[in-house]
Amino acid sequence: MKITVDMSLCQDHGQCAIAAPDVFRMNEEGKLVYDTAPDDSLRTEVEEAADVCPVQAILVQD
């Protein structure tokens, strides 16, 4: 699984970090950082994070 976040769309709401904290997190400056290739065992959480993103900035690929 590969994750891409369109940082030109991302507004750092942090909903993804709540849905999938093992993959997405907010750094000290409040900006999103994430694992671009998380383990497949986290797929459900990652797909939920993509679904809850208010600006639909997260793309999940196989």
Rank of each mutant, 00 (worst) to 15 (best):
L9F: 06
V46L: 11
D12Q: 12
R43G: 08
Q11G: 09
L42I: 03
G14D: 13
D35W: 01
E45C: 04
R43L: 15
S8E: 15
T36G: 11
D39S: 15
M7D: 03
A57Q: 03
S8Q: 14
V5M: 07
Q56H: 15
T4I: 05
E48G: 02
K31P: 01
C53D: 09
V5G: 09
R43C: 03
D62I: 02
L9V: 11
L9S: 11
A57L: 02
P38Y: 01
G14H: 08
P38A: 06
M26A: 05
A17G: 13
I18Y: 11
A17N: 09
Q15Y: 11
I58G: 01
I18L: 14
A17V: 08
I58S: 05
N27C: 08
A50V: 10
P54E: 11
K31H: 12
N27S: 07
A37Y: 07
D39R: 06
Q61H: 14
M7T: 04
A49H: 00
D51K: 13
A50H: 01
S41C: 11
K2A: 07
D51M: 12
A37N: 15
V55S: 10
D40R: 04
V60G: 01
I3A: 03
L9W: 09
L32Q: 02
V55R: 06
T44V: 13
G14R: 05
A37G: 05
D22S: 13
L32N: 01
V5Y: 06
K2N: 15
V5T: 07
Y34T: 06
V5S: 02
L32M: 09
T4N: 11
A19Y: 03
I18A: 13
E29Y: 15
A50F: 06
E48A: 11
A49T: 03
D62P: 13
Q15G: 07
E29N: 12
V46D: 04
V60R: 00
E28L: 11
D6P: 02
R25V: 03
L59Q: 10
Q11V: 12
Q61L: 13
D22M: 08
I18R: 08
